[in-house]
Design a binder for these strands. Sequence first.
DNA 1: GGTATACGGTTCGTATACAAAATTCAAGCG
DNA 2: CGCTTGAATTTTGTATACGAACCGTATACC
Lengths: 217, 217
Amino acid sequence: MQKVDYEDLSQRVYRALKEMILNGDLHPGERLAQDELARRLGVSRTPLLSAFTKLEREMLVQTVPRRGTYVRTFSRRELLDVFEIRLRLEPLGARGAAEHATADQLDELAALTQRYEEIVAAGVPERARHEDLAFHTLIMRMSGNVFLSTFVESSNIILIANVQGLIKPAEASLAEHRELLQAIRARDAESAEALMYRHLESSRAALEQGLARAEGG
Amino acid sequence: MQKVDYEDLSQRVYRALKEMILNGDLHPGERLAQDELARRLGVSRTPLLSAFTKLEREMLVQTVPRRGTYVRTFSRRELLDVFEIRLRLEPLGARGAAEHATADQLDELAALTQRYEEIVAAGVPERARHEDLAFHTLIMRMSGNVFLSTFVESSNIILIANVQGLIKPAEASLAEHRELLQAIRARDAESAEALMYRHLESSRAALEQGLARAEGG
DNA sequence: GGTATACGGTTCGTATACAAAATTCAAGCG
DNA sequence: CGCTTGAATTTTGTATACGAACCGTATACC
């Protein structure tokens, strides 16, 4: 029997904070005072500090020694830098997914695509972003490259938490997701890689434009 | 005046442990008992735990809840996975370096290349590996992409700590380093990217062969 | 004889305690 | 009136304390 894996308090606090940052409950630049947050979460400062450390290595928060911990803010340049990395790594992940995915994973990806379609149709951008993240995250996991999926996931969370409303319309992504699903299902590594690259490249262009507009206006 | 930046105990412990792993003072699979290590380093368990957390997110150690923390071991597949990522990211970094390097950084890179040459000539493989790491790390820093340099650095430390003797001869790398230096100096982004890719691809091939040999024999 | 179980010792995870640095705010000075 | 200075307060970083989970050994049982 599989033992239900116990989760540390630190781990739970970590996930809670990550979720709060992703959802914008903690906004970029906000100071994370240890005492206050610990009280608010009902834990001592110890697991909280551990969570801060994890988040810091993921670039989601920034700690200044003897000063405090803040939700990290990203410059326009930095966001594009993160996207540039995504653009290099996710195609590799898509290729790996086509090569190594299990049947169960393929089913799950199909289900995710289906759900994405429904949510896009329902027109709830908030949920669509979450679903889009889940789609990309699953593909990276399917590649079987743990380092890749871990890192790409962090990158994508940074982006999602910081570029609300600056991404391309979900309707455009939907078609590309469908094509990706097909290529991965067909075990066509070349196509999967190319499709992911094109998918992200057009997103990157949209982001660059969106950021320029946001800065200019 | 630039204030000399104060370093946490946690941070110093973190760097010390990282160095120990890199140098093989702590070998893969070794258990890191909190009490013993804390005594050995002359600190309490608090900063040590913080260091563990950092190292864990860098994949250098692995913590099993309620069991302990161990120096991470990597399978053959995992090492190649890490290298695959390097192969995608470092060319991006080389391109960025050619585009954004400052004059000071170019001088520093030239100095590093010079030192690498001397160390290779002296024939101390231990030091050559360190110098090789420094060369690649600097190029990533020169790109100005913080996320890239942070992540690639972690990847490279994993590799260096785990593939002793399985890498290609430093003499071969030296010529490629010189070419890279030239391309970056000339601000030739295309060449820099391509050269880095070729440099790493031949290293990857050597590693793959080395690992197969190590496993087979 | 081999497996299961209970007990003691150890180690981990979390909470709390304490010292030092940083921030605040008000009073003194230019 | 603004700037500097200094003590009170807050907050951080580190050490220690404590309860609970895990490990090893020895004993009981099949």
